[in-house]
Design a protein around this nucleic acid. Structure first.
Lengths: 207, 207, 207, 207
DNA sequence: TATGAATGAGTGTTCATTCAT
DNA sequence: GATGAATGAACACTCATTCAT
């Protein structure tokens, strides 16, 4: 959420319009995908004229890009904030998983976009645009890896390749979240949360 | 690979054309994505005329759909074959992971398509088309779940929700494969294989 | 230059704004052409807001039209003034050519616009708008024709169709000026002046 | 007119379509100007679908460019052919003027385009495109200059700067042609022809 | 049957013009 | 009055799909 303090009314209005447009774009890109969403759709959803979008974003791609950057930024910030707010290494590890689930529970529409982008990497946009985003993503991956690595150092978890483990952490949750969203069975995400944490921490081996 | 025995030459020719077109589509969809690949691209790659595609597939979507069905079928068949060829329940569990890695190592281009489809679910295509494929996918998920469930029954692994575990199995491997493909570092996939198997079987808990 | 005497301050301010806008339009239309110049460009160049233009001109076309009228008026006035300030019929003829060169030397940017308009006639604007301007242009052509006709009457030049001659006078100078502007070789226009005068008066026939 | 001999039927068909499209473009660009003519207009005029144009020309600009190149080529070829078909230097000079009038009498619509392009030079198109055309134009100017220069050498006309004279030749005729086209008074162009030739050769000086 | 030229609906983008402040 | 943000009509261009050959 962008700072609004200390801005003139004009600037705040501009901010608000940008937010409106980003929200509409998030909704529709999430719902129908990038290619099946037209600029007119977005403008209509946000209750603006088509041309208005172009006052805030140069191209459709740029709007998409801005959306991703914004939300991934929010995501990364949210997870890291949570992790840093707990003390013990093992709780940090648990929080990595919990916070992700919590964030996407609140931003389900965005989850579709996130997944598509994280997995297909570059089929939607041109290479150049992706660079900044890839940097954000890798920075986060590194944060996750470091958290895991710290936990190993502290003797809280077993020693394995932390980068690979970070990637695996990323992966396990995704299809579980996907399913959960699809079925909307609405048992709270807690069940999934404890399932994953239990699985990863204890493994499948019988004692 | 489709049956060719007992077909007239005409029918065999038709089969061959279909294969050619599917192969070209696989290559290009994998390379540039669905929306950035034109029908002409595909026809050209396969060395046919544009119109020819429409003798074998009604629409672009149908070609995509056919491709998915075919390859996912191959995938499912491959994994299930492997799993069934080993005897012990715990080896079956290991083989679930091994076979997946092995298959996609040989079909890297298709992995991109597979991932996109598994994650975005229905943004590429219209709902109706997806039904058959979803059935295939769920059938496979069930097979995985059953294999895992059998292993639990046999006391080879700990008891957890087998469906959820199946979903988790699916998920962990994907981003690891993705990274492996992207970096083309070409240490054999064995490393990833043992990493995943070790992680899931033993978990992270210290003894 | 429009009269400013006897106007209230408000009226003088309005006049000034109009002038500013016309000047900006002249610069940009001359530089980039009518279609490649946006209303925002003009407003920005003149340091006004976009909407302000519409307080002074109903449409883009009207601004263009006003610009043409104004400058062609200046041009015609300038040439006619010069011609009337000399006495002998043959000098008047020479002055027709000299004055044109002199005017456009000082208004090179406008020359581009003038040329485009004189040659393409009505492709830039709708017919109706052109009427007033065509009248101005023809009025000037008549003035030129009369001046030439007078010179014939006075026995200063040979008798030929004066209207056609007026048109020819108009024509010869244009591409020479065009070249001169393009090459910016900046030998003074005198050379061109004497070339044209010599050519038209003496012709190419050997004595 | 392009060669059609030795081409397959397919190639001849393609040629014909190109011609159709160029003809439609010529008509409409001449009538309404480049910017007021839409691709759909052109397609409709030529009785094709909009997309068809893009099979033959990459962009609107390219169509315009192709049209100019083609017709200016025709023009240059026509004039030079005529000039070379007469023997005496003074007749060559006369033919320069005659042939131009004759050509544009048959291609009146194109004359509008020609004029606009020759005078405004680069406001319609991007620089790069213009290069080839500028070369064509200057090559022709040089031909004219050489013809005039030859006539001077041969003692057929007085000695003046041949390049400048070539430019003047170009210029005088244009507005006369313009007037003639506008008034459609349809006295044959001969009158204009003899007027110009008489003017330029004999000049205005009384004997 | 196979082709690839023709099509035209659909979309991103621009910009003259309006109007609330 | 002056502004400049908002608008939406208009247009170039693409590409899945058709169909005459």
């Amino acid at each position: 959420m962008p700072e609004t303090a200390g801005l003139s009314r004009k600037e705040r209005d501009q901010q608000r319009r940008r937010e409106d447009l980003l929200a509409a774009a998030e909704h529709l890109f999430g719902l129908k995908g990038y290619h099946h969403t037209t600029m007119e759709d977005i403008a209509h959803e946000a209750q603006y004229g088509t041309g208005t979008i172009y006052l805030y974003f140069k191209k459709k791609e740029e709007l998409y890009e801005a959306l991703l950057e914004r939300k991934i930024g929010d995501y990364v910030e949210f997870v890291q904030g949570r992790v840093e707010s707990v003390a013990s290494p093992i709780d940090k590890v648990r929080t990595l998983l919990r916070a992700k689930l919590e964030f996407f529970e609140k931003h389900m529409e965005f989850f579709r976009i996130y997944l598509a982008e994280m997995t297909t990497a570059d089929s939607t946009l041109h290479r150049s645009c992706n660079e900044r985003r890839e940097r954000m993503y890798y920075a986060h991956q590194e944060f996750v890896a470091r958290t895991l690595s710290d936990a190993m150092q502290a003797g809280a978890i077993r020693e394995v390749d932390p980068t690979r483990l970070a990637t695996a952490f990323e992966g396990v949750v995704n299809p579980l979240l996907s399913e959960w969203i699809k079925q909307r069975s609405r048992e709270s995400l807690c069940v999934i949360e404890s399932f994953v944490i239990d699985l990863l921490l204890k493994g499948l081996e019988k004692k």
